[in-house]
Design a protein around this nucleic acid. Structure first.
Length: 876
DNA sequence: TGTCACACGC
DNA sequence: GACGTACGTGTGACAA
């Protein structure tokens, strides 16, 4: 058996874990985030690497032999935060429970221990892997030694072997110390040569190999300044290199063979995890302990042979159980009922054929509590049953209370309220290929448990919403909306299959031509759809410059390819191939797969309980991302047609709804004024940001202003904006600053909302939708910044979502009231798509903008544009 | 079966 | 000074 040694830099990993994770507490108030992160990392290593030997090395004491060389070594370092120091004893305990050896020794750092052991192990024929957050360790890399450097978080790493180092730096592992010698390392207070950074250091090393060789040949170095610096700081460079060099002959009284890893001590580890409150990790250990007491209690299931009136009392919890995840055309496999009179399992055949039961379902006065109203409503619609009287939805309530922990499974939602008498669907049905209906007894029990859970949970969720002042949001907005959406989904959208086929044939032909052309230009045949193979062709065979890399190789994304335009004739063909390939696979073949044979319709499902902002999403098919930007793709919309002869498609969209919402929420005078005068908002933004008159706004200024507005609406960072505009981050930051100087109300709002979010822990929309932002107090810059941008953005995007949802309900009521045949079919975030008879066009042009613009009263007018035509394409 | 890179919409 | 940076869905490639 091959021998594999894992060497872990304990201090480094503990630091990484501490700073990467929010400051978790256990119930005794001990901070546990570093221990937790350390554990996650250990678990991963053991599982993935299956080491035969393992050791965790720690730094001992404050001074090492390096301080004799340079007293300021590691000077200026911040003291270890006490919240971290207190966790080290637990980390040691953790390692003991895992039965992983740990080691520290006076005068030496963890690096030196690792260096010494890796050298020994290499000689003894081990495969060695070193894990650290510190790139200094890269100098240990060899044919037998790989070094993993933690990337974001703690469980993701970049793995370095000699090739990877060459790829990243263009040098050998031995030269890492030379690089450090030249550029220094601020975290260890190693000085290096002033003015020399990574780029310069690498350039010098490519020509001169080592610091020593370089210093004997300073006169060959180009650049006067650089020469002088090298001359002046000769000794410092040599000393820096020495400091950076890992000492590989630490006198240790242990041999590599002493480090065998033979598995963890289950009892000890269980005890420790309990003490620390690592409940999910306990489960991973297969610990059942306390959960045993939460085992399902016995339940006597009454299987109903005939539904009788006395079973049907208000309110009732109702489960309409389906087998398929997609509820359209899905078979109903049973009903569950729980109320004051008892708990019942009603087999599908019994329920569907019972007049008493069906009448009860359709009775508006019979109050029903469900989990996922829309799912039940649509499934029953397919059975021609028009269920009414649903007045509470546990799933929706859970989502509104906290969109982050809404889960589609009742069992999971129930557990957030401490209720555990119901299993997950996955546990009962199995998953993937193994998914099947269990035998009737088990099925009946599961369904009844669900009904009981819903009945039991209603009050808790109701109270929760009341406390948050979110009852209206549920009862007046989301629940009525779910019925509107149910109609839209069940109605479906007609798709012209022949049109898709014709386009498919045409695109196939063109794809084949482009494919051949690409092979000719590449001089080889390969799979163009494989980014990996494409990368090899472009960047190795054709030697094009590498613009960007992904963690697995070369990036070949569209923005990279665009930068390579002109560098090779092949590029535009690849872009074309990508574009057409996307149309073919996703929008032609993909769409055809979900068209229902008998009706030529697609029935999407809008997920109403998913996004963190309150927007909807759409699946199977996703009708919210049908192409529009490029003419070629836009043609797909020609295949979306009315479902009745002589009808038309009618589309209406809000103009700049998010920015109008921003104007209102921020009460920004400039913005409000701009919208009250219906100015072109991007031009207006350009005028303010660039300080020019309207006549002097160039198209480029307007484009940049538009991107800034885009950034405001989507909460992107200066980096995001810079990527968008192809400018530097600094410039992007300046744009944002200038924007905020011009719109002072917005600036104040941004500051206030972040402050507000910090003190309350969440932000809200105008209609009281909530989003919690726990990371807004994180000490991790990334997490915190992200949460801050989210705090600014969510009230804007979420309020816009509130508004269009309100409009949808109002629209559906209005069409009903007016006795019109027009139907709402789709919602795409800021637009509504209808189909309608031609004779209703005139009326629609009047009422659609009217209803949408008046959905909610703001301090700025809402504006709606609309268009119609024989296909969705023409409604532009 | 799960993950990644990529591309589409807002 | 670096971090790694709107969301959501679907596709094909690829590794396990």
């Amino acid at each position: 058996m091959s021998k594999k040694l894992i060497l872990i830099d304990g201090n480094s990993i503990a630091y990484r874990a501490f700073f990467a994770l929010p400051l978790l507490n256990n119930d005794k108030g001990i901070h546990t985030n570093a221990v937790y992160g350390f554990t996650m990392m250990l678990m991963r290593i053991i599982e993935e690497e299956k080491p035969t030997h393992m050791l965790v090395a720690f730094d001992a004491g404050k001074t090492t032999f390096r301080h004799k060389t340079f007293t300021e070594y590691k000077g200026g370092r911040q003291k270890t935060p006490p919240e971290l120091s207190e966790q080290f004893p637990f980390i040691r305990e953790l390692l003991d429970a895992y039965q992983v050896k740990r080691y520290e020794i006076e005068n030496y750092e963890a690096d030196d221990i690792i260096g010494t052991l890796s050298l020994q192990a290499e000689k003894d024929g081990f495969e060695v892997k070193v894990i650290s957050g510190d790139k200094d360790l890269l100098q240990l890399v060899s044919d037998r030694v790989t070094v993993d450097i933690t990337r974001k978080g703690i469980t993701e790493v970049d793995s370095y072997d000699p090739a990877a180092i060459d790829e990243k730096y263009g040098i050998t592992p031995d030269q890492i110390i030379d690089m450090k010698g030249l550029m220094g390392d601020s975290s260890d207070n190693i000085p290096g040569v002033p003015g020399v950074g990574e780029k310069t250091a690498l350039k010098l090393l490519k020509e001169h190999e080592t610091v020593e060789k370089l210093l004997t040949a300073i006169d060959q170095v180009s650049g006067k300044k650089l020469k002088e610096k090298l001359e002046e700081f000769k000794d410092q460079a040599l000393m820096s290199k020495e400091l950076a060099t890992i000492f590989r002959e630490v006198p240790m009284e242990m041999a590599v063979t002493d480090l065998a890893y033979e598995g963890y001590d289950v009892d000890r580890l269980t005890a420790l995890f309990k003490e620390l409150g690592f409940n999910t990790l306990l489960e991973k250990l297969g610990y059942e302990g306390e959960t045993v007491s939460e085992e399902l209690e016995n339940l006597d299931v009454t299987t109903v042979e005939e539904v009788t009136e006395d079973m049907l009392v208000s309110p009732s919890a109702l489960i309409v159980e389906l087998f398929d995840e997609n509820y359209h055309h899905s078979d109903i496999i049973g009903f569950g009922l729980a109320n004051e009179s008892g708990e019942y399992f009603i087999p599908a055949s019994v329920g569907l054929q019972s007049d008493v039961f069906v009448q009860w379902l359709e009775d508006q006065q019979a109050e029903k509590v469900v989990f996922d109203a829309k799912r039940s409503v649509v499934a029953l619609k397919w059975k021609n049953i028009d269920i009414k009287g649903i007045n509470f939805d546990i799933l929706m309530a859970s989502y509104l209370l906290n969109p982050a922990d809404s889960n589609e499974d009742l069992s999971t939602v129930a557990r957030t309220k401490g209720y555990s008498q119901v299993q997950t669907d996955e546990a009962v049905y199995g998953k993937g290929a193994k998914r099947k209906v269990p035998e009737e007894g088990d099925l009946a029990e599961h369904i009844v448990r669900k009904a009981v859970a819903v009945y039991h949970l209603k009050d808790a969720f109701y109270e929760g919403l009341k406390e948050n002042e979110q009852l209206d949001l549920l009862m007046e907005l989301e629940l009525p909306l779910s019925l509107v959406l149910a109609d839209m989904e069940a109605q479906g959208v007609r798709v012209d299959r022949n049109k898709l086929n014709d386009m498919g044939v045409d695109i196939k032909k063109r794809l084949e031509e482009i494919e051949q052309r690409i092979y000719e230009l590449a001089g080889t045949e390969f799979n163009i759809n494989s980014p990996k193979q494409l990368g090899v062709v472009l960047f190795e065979q054709l030697q094009l410059p590498v613009v960007k890399k992904t963690k697995t190789g070369y990036s070949t994304s569209a923005d990279v390819l665009e930068q390579l335009q002109g560098a090779h004739e092949i590029i535009p063909y690849i872009l074309d191939y990508r574009q057409l390939g996307k149309l073919q696979s996703t929008y032609i073949e993909g769409l055809k797969k979900v068209i229902y044979e008998e009706t030529d319709k697609v029935h999407t499902r809008f997920n109403q309980t998913l996004t963190q902002t309150g927007r909807l999403s759409s699946t199977d098919p996703n009708l919210q991302n049908i192409p529009i930007r490029l003419e070629e793709g836009r043609k797909i919309r020609q295949a979306f047609v009315p479902s009745e002869p002589d009808w038309i498609m009618f589309a209406a969209d809000y103009s700049q709804i998010e920015l109008r919402v921003l104007a209102h929420i921020a009460q920004d005078k400039e913005l409000i004024d701009a919208f009250q005068h219906d100015l072109d908002i991007h031009t207006k933004t350009a005028m303010d940001v660039f300080h020019v008159e309207k006549e002097d706004v160039t198209s480029n200024m307007r484009r940049q202003a538009k991107a800034v507005n885009f950034g405001i609406v989507y909460g992107i960072s200066d980096y995001g904006l810079s990527q968008n505009l192809g400018i530097t981050r600094k410039e992007a930051g300046k744009f944002i600053d200038r924007y905020l100087e011009s719109f002072t109300g917005v600036k104040e709002y941004m500051e206030d909302i972040v402050h507000d979010a910090k003190s309350k822990g969440y932000v809200t929309t105008l209609l009281n939708r909530r989003r919690y932002l726990p990371e807004i107090t994180s000490r991790n810059f990334n997490l915190r910044s992200f949460a801050e941008r989210t705090a600014m953005n969510t009230p804007i995007q979420g309020t816009a979502a509130d508004i269009i949802k309100k409009a949808m309900i109002a629209m559906s009521e209005r069409l009903e009231k007016e006795g019109m045949k027009a139907r709402l079919l789709l919602q795409v975030h800021d637009e509504l798509i209808f189909e309608a008879p031609q004779e209703e066009i005139e009326k629609l042009q009047e009422i659609v903008p009217d209803v949408m613009e008046n959905a909610l009263q703001l301090d700025v007018p809402l504006k709606v544009d609309y268009a119609y035509g024989p296909t969705w394409f023409d409604a532009k």
